[in-house]
Design a protein around this nucleic acid. Sequence first.
DNA 1: AAACGGATTGGCT
DNA 2: GCCAATCCGTTTC
Length: 206
Amino acid sequence: MVESPSKIPFSYYLNPDVIFLAKDLLGKVLYTQIDGEITSGIIVETEAYFGIQDKASHAYGGRRTDRTETLYSQGGVSYVYLCYGIHHLFNIVSSVEGEPHAVLIRAIEPLTGKDIMETRRNMSASKGAISAGPGSAAKALGIDRSFNKKDLGGEEIWLEDHGIRYTEDQIAASPRVGVAYAQEDALLPWRFFIKGNKYVSKPNKV
DNA sequence: AAACGGATTGGCT
DNA sequence: GCCAATCCGTTTC
């Protein structure tokens, strides 16, 4: 396989428009390397979390705790937290230091190291469920709590641009999943995904 | 030191 | 397609 992968530059993550970034990250390739084992996947579903103004964000209202401190970092680091006591959810922190914007990676299409992902998930990579949904995608890539606050241009976790581009009509926008508690902000169309891709998580409608 | 609650998943009908 | 388990880190007392 011939390819000319390029790590996404640090400056990419400083973009203050997290809605744009959430959409633009579709098609980018997310890599992890753990004990020499490399796995990667094409990002096919994301959600934007709009800092202190967003009732669905952990940083809503400027909330600062030990956990949310990572969100206030300069863009280009990871924010990983535990949900429901079981699932690790992976986010890309963006914008400048002090602005807690982030993009949740909700699904990936397996690309490299499919056999490793199959072992981690105990199912075939031909099954969409292997990496559909934020908890599943993180598990397939081996992401856990230890990946919190990691530089996204490092040796353990990084993103590459393989030139994969989607047209407007291949991308759907819909309300975010599981944020009913955010009241009116729950209706904002800040979830983006590739129409018809089988690795996109269940709520597959616009 | 104790209670809380969740950016979900997957099993079951 | 619906519904319910799950459980530990985070927060607060």
